[in-house]
Simulated assay, not measured.
Amino acid sequence: MMVEQQHKGRIRGHAAVHRWFFLAEQALRAHGDSLNRLNVFPVADSDTGANMLATMAAARQAAEQSEEDLGALLATAGTEAMAEARGNSGTLLAVLLSGFAEPLHGHERLTIGALDQALEHGSVRAWSALSDPVGGTMLSVLDAVRACARQQAAAAEEPESRTALIDSLDSMLEVARQAVVATEGELEALTRAGVVDSGGTGLLIIFDALRAAVTGTEPDPHLLEGLHGLEREPAAQPAGAEDEDHVEIMCTVRLDPLGAASLRHQLDEVGESVIITPIDAEADEQGSYRWRIHVHAGTEEEASQVIHASGEVTTYTAAPLYGAETEH
């Protein structure tokens, strides 16, 4: 009987995650153009919607192949999403999914307490992945939701109940929306453009999909109404951008933690928007991990030399911030 109950719990937990990813992918596809129009920070390359959609699609496909507990399922999804991630927003979304997984190992269903821990770990992973994290972004939205979850978990009379989780998700979604609205006044680039943050808005969409999956309802069709910038034209390139050599590099490199720290320091010297985060949960026999790397560089040559000199590069893609990508 106990084995049967555990199996049923696993099915319910899996079903919720599968539906969450499915609904999130659908919603990101539906709102992709809007997210792209909002995209002015850190560069106005109008690809946030596409990047977050690609990450979620990879996570959804990976989750469909997993039959493990919630933590292992999310870890599998996060690892695959990390390997396929593109851009700041896509990479941070993959980092969050991987971070969510860590405290959920052994859990067959989601509770407000487990979600609180997952959000805490996700926040730590996301902030530590960035060399220069700033507020007014999806990090601000994440932290607002994390704080709300902590309050809801502490106040819940029956923290293991489904009702406590549902009530908390409603509150967290409202807090997330308020945090998105606030981003416009937290970053000069957003204030100047009169828009809310694109990545933060994408995260709001994903949290709404989670609420819908847990409650067995549909995402809120009015979720984004009233947010500033949704009807604007796509962000214009900075003057002369088409004549510059700035590139966005995404790659995977096998390094030990010390090597990763050294690479971060070197990339901070030659580029910006640096994200370095481990893909693997455990090191190989030599003590190294696969690390996902993201950087905006003034020219590809210098950043590429630094990356290839640091360790074994298993994937490498470089794209002009306003052009087509190339693979090496």
Rank of each mutant, 00 (worst) to 15 (best):
M2I: 14
E4Q: 07
E4W: 08
H14S: 07
Q26H: 12
Q26E: 12
L28E: 03
G32A: 06
G32C: 07
L35V: 01
V43G: 06
D47C: 07
G49H: 02
A50C: 08
M56F: 14
L70H: 12
L74G: 13
G87Q: 03
N88C: 13
E108D: 11
I112V: 12
G113M: 06
A114K: 00
A114G: 05
S123P: 11
V134P: 07
M138L: 10
V141Q: 05
R146C: 14
A147F: 03
A147P: 04
C148S: 10
A156V: 01
E158C: 05
T163R: 15
D167L: 08
S168D: 04
L173W: 15
V180K: 02
E184M: 11
G185N: 01
E186A: 13
L187I: 04
E188L: 05
A189E: 02
T191Q: 01
R192K: 14
G194R: 11
V195W: 02
V196G: 02
S198P: 04
G199M: 04
L204Q: 01
T215G: 12
T215E: 15
E225K: 01
E225S: 13
E231H: 12
A236G: 08
P238L: 01
E244M: 09
E244I: 04
H246G: 13
E248N: 05
M250T: 12
R254H: 13
L255K: 01
D268Y: 15
V270W: 14
G271V: 00
E272Y: 14
V274F: 09
I275D: 00
I279H: 11
D280H: 10
A281M: 00
E282D: 04
A283M: 10
A283V: 01
A297T: 00
T299M: 07
E300I: 10
E301I: 05
A303G: 00
V306W: 14
G311S: 02
T314F: 02
T317I: 15
A319K: 15
L321H: 00
L321C: 07
